[in-house]
Amino acid sequence: MSIQHFRVALIPFFAAFCLPVFAHPETLVKVKDAEDQLGARVGYIELDLNSGKILESFRPEERFPMMSTFKVLLCGAVLSRVDAGQEQLGRRIHYSQNDLVEYSPVTEKHLTDGMTVRELCSAAITMSDNTAANLLLTTIGGPKELTAFLHNMGDHVTRLDRWEPELNEAIPNDERDTTMPAAMATTLRKLLTGELLTLASRQQLIDWMEADKVAGPLLRSALPAGWFIADKSGAGERGSRGIIAALGPDGKPSRIVVIYTTGSQATMDERNRQIAEIGASLIKHW
């Protein structure tokens, strides 16, 4: 067993022997301040990774656009098919120029040779490549099948209805392509620590998230040296922004954090800054 596999296998073990965790309302004060600064709703939840206990939450059962955070769930569904012998990570998928959609920095470079399922998941999570996500959605049967996968996990809230990039439209009061912070946090925890996926697939999923290259201005910008984070960000229309993450000190994750916002007129930089400040408060009061 590799060191990384050992780390993920012992996530519940280490967490069980940690000192009790206590909620700190100071972080919620910052979440509410972010709402004021952005002029928009902000949803927040913080779960203990081992027990699933909610440590703090704000608007945990209000719907927010998922945006690209759905790509972690998508690759979880792909990995479940791999575990069941219905898919192979090494299978190569070929596609054409007509398949390319807006923001496809990886797939646009491989029109000639195609990409493997493993490479597509890596591109979808680490670079948020939209064509990679659409190609992977095709392998599982489309958005409705991802929703069905989530329902089978016990998540009857999260739903995907459309493809990239239309799913980022974020129309107010439109339930399409949305989740709730509580539902997303619980589902992410199941994917990373539950028995739904094999140990190898859980490790692969967290490795992809740990290698995320496009979430630097968010929670990662607030992390002290030595902290662990595996995350996936999302951005959408109407001032929408979000991030889902597993993080913790001492090089291992111990909490799940989900943050979503929508309806702001603020710039992307300002949305990023507010999420980073929430992260800084979380870490300060850990």
Results as ranks from 00 to 15, higher is better:
202 R>D: 03
98 N>I: 14
240 S>T: 07
167 L>W: 01
40 A>T: 08
1 M>P: 00
55 L>R: 09
108 E>P: 07
136 L>N: 01
267 T>E: 13
284 K>T: 14
134 N>L: 02
49 L>P: 05
1 M>I: 07
41 R>I: 09
57 S>N: 09
187 T>G: 08
240 S>H: 06
75 C>R: 00
128 S>I: 00
65 P>F: 03
189 R>M: 10
105 P>A: 06
161 D>P: 01
256 I>S: 01
155 D>Y: 01
86 Q>T: 13
53 K>C: 08
189 R>A: 13
27 T>A: 06
229 I>T: 03
23 A>P: 07
280 A>T: 11
140 I>H: 04
173 N>D: 15
209 M>V: 01
231 D>E: 04
80 S>L: 11
156 H>N: 14
171 I>V: 15
208 W>V: 02
211 A>M: 10
256 I>Y: 03
108 E>G: 12
21 V>G: 08
133 A>I: 00
62 E>Q: 07
138 T>F: 10
125 I>T: 07
247 L>E: 02
74 L>P: 01
223 L>S: 07
22 F>S: 12
275 I>V: 12
201 S>F: 04
148 A>C: 13
238 R>W: 10
9 A>S: 15
156 H>A: 15
256 I>H: 00
82 V>T: 09
130 N>K: 00
201 S>K: 07
158 T>G: 05
58 F>G: 05
65 P>M: 02
91 R>L: 05
108 E>I: 12
251 G>S: 11
110 H>E: 07
196 L>F: 13
38 L>H: 07
119 E>W: 02
159 R>Y: 06
243 I>K: 00
2 S>W: 09
5 H>E: 09
7 R>Q: 14
6 F>T: 06
211 A>S: 13
198 T>F: 07
178 T>R: 02
202 R>F: 03
159 R>C: 06
29 V>Y: 04
194 G>V: 07
166 E>H: 11
7 R>C: 06
36 D>L: 15
122 S>N: 15
6 F>C: 10
20 P>K: 14
256 I>A: 05
243 I>M: 06
141 G>K: 07
70 F>M: 14
36 D>W: 15
193 T>W: 10
11 I>D: 02
210 E>M: 10
170 A>T: 08
121 C>K: 00
268 M>F: 11
285 H>Y: 12
214 V>F: 05
122 S>V: 12
86 Q>D: 13
49 L>A: 09
131 T>Q: 03
25 P>G: 08
156 H>C: 13
14 F>Q: 03
55 L>G: 06
181 P>L: 03
94 H>W: 13
228 F>T: 07
67 M>G: 13
159 R>V: 07
29 V>A: 14
39 G>E: 15
218 L>R: 02
198 T>Y: 07
44 Y>R: 00
1 M>Q: 01
194 G>M: 08
190 K>F: 08
103 Y>A: 06
172 P>L: 12
153 M>E: 08
40 A>M: 09
263 G>I: 04
138 T>P: 06
240 S>R: 02
155 D>S: 02
259 I>H: 00
239 G>Q: 03
284 K>Y: 14
127 M>N: 08
182 A>R: 14
120 L>H: 03
239 G>N: 05
99 D>T: 09
45 I>E: 04
142 G>N: 06
165 P>E: 06
215 A>R: 04
253 P>H: 10
276 A>S: 14
13 F>A: 14
11 I>P: 05
93 I>C: 06
169 E>T: 13
274 Q>S: 10
